[in-house]
């Protein structure tokens, strides 16, 4: 694949003797929408931790972009600046600050302390913020402290912050958790739209949601890839059925 954006190759990681990731290899293209499923403890979150620099693998390679840069030597913030955005399982927005401040912080701009200190907003930036707020349906809540938003709204705000970063790769951990049916549909829409121009990796439990994404699916089990392909393809796989239902 010549349009490979991220290549994870032979990565393993061990926590106190427990092998959370075992010789895992995954490739993500750009643009692409990919769903990663797997039972509890399959290593889905650890996989994201490795890509975003939170966890250092014991062995293996993580290669990024056209110039084949290794992500393993970089800090979390450097990786984020490379264009990798992450949404956590639990919505983590800065609750003491308004929606506007949250979005402004995430907006793609220079990240150095002095750049930020001397940063002054301007109408085009404000315009971008309003645009983003409209996309996630929070245009009326711009000056609301994000702590008082509903659970679903927080999820959207976080997706909005992700989009504001304008990343090339989005890692989304269980976006639909705790959402109503309508909210799920809108979330699906946002993700699918985002995946038209960039790579989006969604970790999800909910098969219904994955089906609606209608994309390539990777099944993780005990830290390595069990099966890969369309949802129908992988759900027909006997080992996958055993893993999901066998225990």
């Amino acid at each position: 694949m010549n349009n490979t954006l991220l290549e994870v190759d032979g990565v393993s990681v061990t926590f106190d003797g427990f092998r959370a990731i075992n010789n895992l290899s995954i490739q993500i293209a750009e643009p692409e929408l990919r769903a990663i499923i797997g039972p509890n403890g399959a290593g889905k979150t650890t996989f994201m931790d490795i890509i975003t620099g939170k966890t250092r693998p014991d062995e293996g390679k993580v290669i990024w972009g056209e110039r084949n840069i290794s992500l393993l030597k970089m800090s979390e913030s450097q990786i984020a600046q490379q264009g990798i955005g992450r949404k956590f399982q639990k919505p983590t927005v800065f609750e003491a600050q308004t929606v506007r401040e949250n979005l402004a912080m995430a907006l793609k701009n220079k990240r150095g302390p002095f750049d930020v200190l001397f940063f002054r907003s301007n109408p085009s930036i404000e315009g971008e913020i309003v645009e983003l707020a409209e996309e996630i349906g929070l245009q009326d809540a711009l000056d609301t402290p994000s702590g008082i938003l509903s659970h679903g709204q927080k999820q959207w705000l976080e997706i909005g912050m992700l989009l504001a970063q304008d990343p090339r790769l989005l890692l989304v951990d269980e976006p639909a958790a705790g959402m109503t049916q309508a909210e799920r549909e809108q979330t699906t829409e946002i993700l699918v739209r985002a995946a038209q121009t960039r790579a989006v990796v969604v970790v999800e439990h909910d098969m219904e949601f994955v089906r609606r994404l209608n994309c390539k699916v990777t099944v993780l089990h005990e830290g390595s890839v069990l099966a890969e392909g369309s949802l129908d393809h992988v759900t027909a796989n006997q080992t996958v059925i055993d893993v999901y239902l066998g225990r």
Binding site: S75, S77, R86, F94, A96, P113, V116, S121
Partner: peptide, 26 residues
């Protein structure tokens, strides 16, 4: 200003700020 916003964000959730691409240590 925006720096204050980032500082308060660091206070409340340092790891999240890092994933936004800010070098928290600086």
């Amino acid at each position: 200003g925006k720096l204050g916003s980032v500082l308060r964000a660091i206070r409340d959730n340092e790891a999240r700020v890092r994933f936004l691409g800010y070098h928290v240590e600086s």
